[in-house]
């Protein structure tokens, strides 16, 4: 074990200063040091996507980023993005379409879908499927999620027009 290293970062808009072991990944740091348990752990080898967070505005897998790599950066998690209202349309569509069952993949799925809609406000179903294909869901079979993202895209487009 190497001695803890000081880091300072912004998490959901709040400045956080901490001493972290260099080996601790960002997801463990968020969950264990900050109690932000909405970011989930599914595999810890970068496959399932459940630990997706935003790092300086880009989505990353929190299990593939060390906490020390987030030093000086801005992290946004499901808790912050929910409270800000950024995910309102997506969350409403997920609820109406029952696009989650156990809900374990859902925070990451919402962040990934949010990124897609930011880049491409009117994606077709194949594009949505492709974009979400790095996020495991074992419950839904994906169709309801694809539907919900389509519905949310239309809601966002309607809100802007």
């Amino acid at each position: 074990m190497i001695a803890p290293t000081p880091i300072t970062l912004t998490v959901n808009g709040e400045t956080v200063a901490a001493q972290v072991e260099p080996r601790i990944h960002l997801t463990d740091f968020l969950r264990e040091n900050l109690g932000l348990t909405g970011t989930h752990i599914g595999c810890e080898h970068g496959v399932c996507g459940a630990c997706t967070v935003r790092l300086d505005g880009e989505i990353v897998r929190g299990c593939l980023v060390l906490a020390v790599q987030a030093d000086g950066k801005s992290v946004e998690t499901i808790e912050g993005l929910s409270d800000s209202g950024a995910l309102d349309e997506l969350q409403a569509a997920f609820r109406d379409r029952n696009a989650l069952q156990c809900g374990y993949c859902t925070p990451a799925m919402l962040l990934t879908a949010h990124e897609l809609l930011a880049r491409n406000p009117t994606p077709d179903r194949a594009t949505i499927r492709e974009h979400l294909s790095g996020n495991y869901c074992r419950c839904t079979g994906y169709q309801a999620i694809i539907d919900a993202v389509e519905i949310a895209a239309r809601a966002r487009a309607g809100a802007k027009s």
């Binding site: 932000l36 989930h40 998690t77 029952n98």
Partner: peptide, 14 residues
């Protein structure tokens, strides 16, 4: 659903 979508679920791992 709301708590699950907001990352406010309580799984044992949490």
């Amino acid at each position: 659903l709301k708590r699950l979508m907001q990352g406010r679920g309580q799984y044992v791992s949490d």
